[in-house]
């Protein structure tokens, strides 16, 4: 059963930025886009095991810091190679200035 987990405060993340969020043995990223929407995806790139939290957020996409594959954070879709597999995404909600993710 998936649970809603309190991941961070909304202002822990700057506009168009990302933070790493570790939960149990898993690692995720929480992304804030240019319109203050929040997204949660797996934290490691699907190409190699690189933490996406060091990457670049442009609008609602994240670019992997290693080989520049771009993922759409709204649905996890990979937009440019070398990564060929999509990222898993997880529902998010904002309540009382906190970001919750369903994982």
């Amino acid at each position: 059963m998936a649970d809603w987990v309190d991941a961070c405060a909304t202002d822990d993340i700057e506009e168009e930025d990302v933070i790493r969020f570790d939960h149990g043995s898993r690692t995720f990223i929480i992304v804030r886009d240019h319109e203050d929407n929040y997204y949660c995806t797996d934290g490691l790139c699907t190409h190699e095991e690189v933490h996406l939290s060091d990457g670049l957020v442009v609008e609602a996409t994240i670019e992997c810091p290693k080989h520049s594959s771009i993922f759409d954070c709204t649905n996890g879709e990979v937009e440019t190679p070398p990564a060929c597999e999509n990222l898993h995404t997880y529902p998010t909600k904002v309540e009382n200035g906190r970001v919750f993710v369903e994982i």
Partner: peptide
């Protein structure tokens, strides 16, 4: 373009 995209990714890895 595709071969060298992957080849260069490997060079960076």
């Amino acid at each position: 373009p595709h071969c060298w995209k992957f080849s260069h990714a490997r060079h960076h890895s």
